[in-house]
Design a protein around this nucleic acid. Sequence first.
DNA 1: CTTGGAATGTCAACAAGGCTGACGTAAATT
DNA 2: AATTTACGTCAGCCTTGTTGACATTCCAAG
Lengths: 166, 166
Amino acid sequence: MADVKSGDDSLLFLTDENLRKGIEAMFFAYRGFTSDPDRILQGMDYGRAHHRAVHFIHRAPGTTVGNLLDILGVTKQSLNRVLRSLFDDGLVEARVGRKDRRERHLYLTEKGAALERSLSDAQRARMRSAYRAAGPVAVAGFRTVLEAMMDDSQRRQYTALKDGST
Amino acid sequence: MADVKSGDDSLLFLTDENLRKGIEAMFFAYRGFTSDPDRILQGMDYGRAHHRAVHFIHRAPGTTVGNLLDILGVTKQSLNRVLRSLFDDGLVEARVGRKDRRERHLYLTEKGAALERSLSDAQRARMRSAYRAAGPVAVAGFRTVLEAMMDDSQRRQYTALKDGST
DNA sequence: CTTGGAATGTCAACAAGGCTGACGTAAATT
DNA sequence: AATTTACGTCAGCCTTGTTGACATTCCAAG
């Protein structure tokens, strides 16, 4: 695909220079992307790892620990440290699986949902403002490129969530 | 805001659902974005922090330590630890400023340039494949949205680099 | 010339959040 | 009954970020 004859400059967007700009844009944008939740979380005993856990538990209530491990791509020891503090503080609760009682299904409590809301409100506000400034066509392109940047396994998780439950 | 009259769907891309998808796309894509260099670096004594330092020294040869501090947004103690190991291993060299001799101007050695090349080759390969799959219009949108997501100070640094020296 | 402040380097201590390895328990599966 | 799976936990390590304190060097202003 995209086998462009010479004389055609439609592949100029693939120059190393343009790729470098994209790389640096990712770097700086990701900083902005995480900065608002980070600001909210600092001072609490929580960090970015808690944010991620809370986000995906909110997103897929009743998800199992193992499932969350796959999505977050960390070790169970690492996730467990985070989950334990969320349990202890009453933000997340685990219910034993009904079908398979080895599984723990995770849910946000009211308190947890409140934190999730405050974090995602902040992050969405930045996203919304960026989307609005860029317009719908740019946003579609944004999502297309991001999706193409993922590993296969990540893309599967993303799309599984994308059109997910609720 | 976003007071969309019914019948007009031009602002439908600003729904919370779409914003959430963008947020998750950023999360998963960033993992892909960093995974190739991370894989190369693991096993060496280096990590992502070294990659960033090497990248921006390559990008703006002769940059000062203070300048790099601004770009990377870390403390000098943190950066110094990274730079010291790069000095020790002969990947980066610091030349005392000619005009202001307090400043250290940073340059990659041949060895440092080789590492930079291997890291950025890997990262560019992923980027190129994503760009190619998405096409030029999507790429333009991608960059537009990312730029809109940055903080002002980040955007200034980004654009300063974007059309920068060489 | 002296001094204030800027740029840099360094030491010590600490925290978050990754990691591995090992081990234990309960429950499902074979 | 034996094995595998899902989960939890203990112990220890690494990277990379943080703060605070302090020394050095040197430009620039008084």
